[in-house]
């Protein structure tokens, strides 16, 4: 028996969200007193054995050129084969974009109950119940799963990666791999930038910044903090910023360690995307802005004065000129 963790290594590199999934899955394996194993699809350049430090004892690698790009149908089929062979009773994904494509298919294929967007370890004291975020971060639901195999996809940034000691045994797994029906023709990735959904720190700005020409200071602050940039919906709608920065009810839901909101009023639909952030800082000139109610730290002031000072102060802290 095992807990099987899907290790997403698109483009040859293991994603940060998969490190979280491994740490989380290894902890469940400990709870259930079974082995933690991983599955990697595709030709990966990274040293897989070293992933043992996140608690996985064994990694099944399926190397096949057909797995170069994601076709959820092909991936789910292969993962099901590995799950069966390793006797998995729990399968863990990150609730990343790829996880959202694969986990539901696998759930239907294996008739394995799925908890999508888990935020905590399962409670195994009485059955198997997992807490997940619902109502766009405004509440949690405890979902009970009674099927023999259970699938959990873990919310990004919900479980802290812990690196310990150990190496994993890497074994080649011979799977039947179908030809993909989805053909990826191009991948467009902003290289060097921190992906928004994986970022530890996010600097976000709203209509209070008046226009796209004023985003220089937001980008500078983000760069200094190795943060991703985000924005409110009207900002994306007005094309001041790209759509993939839009957070909220109808954009991305994120849960970084630190979220800095500049010139954003904090409408309920906007908060829905960011309310699971651990620490929220709000900079707004209106002391009545609703965002202050959701904030941990705040400055009532003009962003055009406060943000440059904040940049200087962080430079001092980090010792950069």
């Amino acid at each position: 028996m095992s807990v099987l963790i899907f290790i997403d290594a698109a483009e040859g590199q293991v994603k940060k969200s998969s490190l979280e999934a491994m740490t989380y899955g290894a902890k469940i394996a400990e709870q259930l007193n079974v082995a933690a194993e991983g599955v990697v699809l595709g030709n990966v350049t990274e040293d897989l054995a070293a992933l043992g430090k996140y608690g996985v004892k064994k990694i099944h690698q399926v190397s096949n050129d057909e797995l170069k790009n994601l076709d959820a149908q092909v991936y789910a089929n292969v993962i099901a084969q590995v799950a069966e062979a390793s006797g998995a009773t729990v399968i863990v994904f990150s609730n990343s974009m790829d996880g959202k494509a694969i986990a539901p298919r696998l759930s239907a294929r294996m008739k394995a109950g799925l908890v999508a967007g888990a935020v905590a370890l399962p409670d195994t004291s009485n059955g198997f119940t997992v807490k997940k975020s619902v109502f766009s971060g405004k509440a949690f639901a405890n979902i009970s799963v009674a099927t023999p195999v259970k699938i959990i996809s873990l919310s990004p940034n919900a479980y802290k990666t812990v690196a310990g000691e150990g190496t994993a045994e890497v074994v080649a797994f011979a799977a039947t791999v179908d030809a993909p029906k989805v053909k990826v023709t191009s991948v467009n990735k902003a290289s060097g930038e921190v992906p928004l959904t994986e970022a530890e720190i996010v600097v976000s700005a709203g209509r209070g910044l008046k226009g796209p020409e004023n985003w220089g200071m937001v980008e500078e602050l983000a760069k200094l903090l190795h943060a991703a940039t985000a924005c409110s919906r009207p900002v994306a709608d007005a094309d001041w910023r790209p759509h993939n920065e839009h957070v909220g009810q109808t954009g991305f839901a994120i849960a970084p360690n630190l979220y800095i909101a500049i010139g954003i009023s904090g409408a309920i639909q906007d908060l829905a995307g960011v309310n699971r952030s651990k620490v929220i800082v709000v900079i707004n000139k209106d002391p009545e802005a609703p965002f202050f109610k959701a904030a941990d730290y705040g400055i009532v002031g003009d962003a055009f004065e406060v943000v440059p000072k904040l940049i200087e102060s962080i430079k001092k802290l980090k010792g950069v000129a």
């Binding site: 619902v134 971060g137 509440a139 405890n142 979902i143 009970s144 309310n275 109610k293």
Partner: peptide, 16 residues
């Protein structure tokens, strides 16, 4: 395959 056992609300923020 699943049932909802119950809901929780997040703890209130301590205040800004």
């Amino acid at each position: 395959l699943t049932t909802v056992a119950g809901f929780d609300l997040p703890p209130a923020k301590a205040g800004v």
